[in-house]
Write a protein that binds this DNA or RNA. Sequence first.
DNA 1: TTGGTGTGATATATCGTTTTTCTTATAATG
DNA 2: CATTATAAGAAAAACGATATATCACACCAA
Lengths: 345, 345
Amino acid sequence: MKGKNKPTSVDIAHLAGVSQPTVSRALRDSPLVSLETRQRVQRIARELNYKVDVNARNLRSQRTNTLALLLFEDKSEGERFINPFFLAMLGSITRATANRGYDLLVSFQQLSDDWNAEYEDANKADGIIFLGYGDYTTYIERISKLDRQGAHFVTWGPVIENQPGLFVGCDNEQGGYLAAKHLLEKGHKNIAFLGDKSKDYPEFRDRYTGYTRAHTEVGEEAKEALRFNAFFSEESGYQATLELLETGVEFSAISCASDLIAVGAIKALRQNGLRVPNDIAIVGFDDIPTAEHLAPALTTIRQDTFAAGQALVDSVLMLINDEDVSSSLLTTNLIVRDSCGQPQT
Amino acid sequence: MKGKNKPTSVDIAHLAGVSQPTVSRALRDSPLVSLETRQRVQRIARELNYKVDVNARNLRSQRTNTLALLLFEDKSEGERFINPFFLAMLGSITRATANRGYDLLVSFQQLSDDWNAEYEDANKADGIIFLGYGDYTTYIERISKLDRQGAHFVTWGPVIENQPGLFVGCDNEQGGYLAAKHLLEKGHKNIAFLGDKSKDYPEFRDRYTGYTRAHTEVGEEAKEALRFNAFFSEESGYQATLELLETGVEFSAISCASDLIAVGAIKALRQNGLRVPNDIAIVGFDDIPTAEHLAPALTTIRQDTFAAGQALVDSVLMLINDEDVSSSLLTTNLIVRDSCGQPQT
DNA sequence: TTGGTGTGATATATCGTTTTTCTTATAATG
DNA sequence: CATTATAAGAAAAACGATATATCACACCAA
């Protein structure tokens, strides 16, 4: 039997000898209430340990002071662990949201779910941040719908021209360029690319575009035969590398479209008696926390998750406040560690 | 100018030719409404893309269908990244909450903040999960207050006897025991312990207790001179190891109270020309994602974050539903990898 | 005929705020 | 002095649902 009689604004009103709306105003420091009354009300509220009921407040004011973060994945439900890059993003978004005085509602959704209406329509949140990967073709459709409905949302991902909705993403093309350029400068001529060959994952496609730009810049050819399918898991990187080895094409370096792919690649190479970086040089993408501790420490393209989280949060907030915002592209950085070894002439 | 006229239950009622409360019932499949009417109402609701307003619902029903996760840290606000172990927990709790059909509100709080009333008192959540580390003495005080208020909450951490509140934690003593035993079996006599010497971090204290039990079990002495202060960061592990080396005590192995400490220790050892595991064997604690990719791959004590997340969520839910629950202790596992090398006789 | 029972819905009260409108006392103005 | 402003607050009306009480009606038993 727990005596949970939470005090309400009416209780405070009685004690302070004022009307209930006055309490509401006083607590929000409204100038419509005299300083004296304000202080008296606030003191009493503090003594009673009073907290405004957010549901009542939100209902009346039609604002929730909450953002929703929707993580979606293409993969099977069975996966127990979240992609480390997204996990890092989750952490940074959590922090950024807190810093702006908002609450954050975190949720997982399969891409197929009906998240369209789930959050903003139900008044759970004022705005939504989408984080994930998957098939963008269906995604764009859904986004268009959301956009027509006037929802406030930002997507982490490639900034696509002429698409509805707001995007915040890294400059994948630049990242892909930096990675390939680094390898080319080290004298590698045949650089395999492990990423997506189809056009469903624009991030990977852009990274490959950067890869080709780096090649043409130095008068090399980006050979299609060196391009292999790999997605977001260590396992797929492993498989892709085995495939690469089987085809027998000549190569001395690999540019991986994600660090997880790189982890799998290193494993596959090692199992086939190839040493990194001595025999094969490797560059990753993301700079997940594990990257620097790999053996060898992974040279990779860093996506600044800290800045990304802030940019995402700031963007939705501006959207919510009807300020002008446009999609933004964050710059990436090459982090040189040991997986590409010394320059070879 | 966005036409955001969200339909309400009244709108549905008009269209369906019934009263508004009937709509409410029909949508919740109440048997008080005839099947026919129910289906008609539901169809119309679907067509209008209607979603119940959670604030109104929560206000009336005094339930939020939401859990709050409070991450707190002792450390400076400046830290940009979250401890990887807690990040993993965050991921698993997110998943577990979603599986139970609840929403999850995630927040950071410094331990000094007034989170007491922030969530449940404000009706933001039905229950709270606390996750973090810090000085337990002040923590217990606060918890007692919460408990008296009849709040529903669970803390991740050491199960402490005679304390108010519900705890879910790993069996730290057992973990510490497993780690030390593994090293002792490999023939090590002088095993340094890097953790907390004071009693402020019960997890670490328990791990050390297990360490001593393993020693006494084989008739060895747990020497106080081999115990060093280290907390939750890589940096502190690094410093502790330098200190260990400076004192000049003889040792051939280190049991680290966390993987992050182990990372720092390996770094320090390597800088001083000592090889792991050839010269010094190392065991960690946690099994963070990075652990298996370290060089050498880290032998460590795994805390099953997946099970932990589920246990935490299930516990709060039972508390909320007034079912009987008691604190639970999850078992830990020794994960043997390469950092302890081959048995030395 | 009267009264009881069950069914399917309606009417009304309620949750705890914020917002809008109204009141009253006092001060300022011409 | 009559009038208008201003201040400070009260009263009432939302917000959009759920919960409780009530009603109309059909059916059946006594």
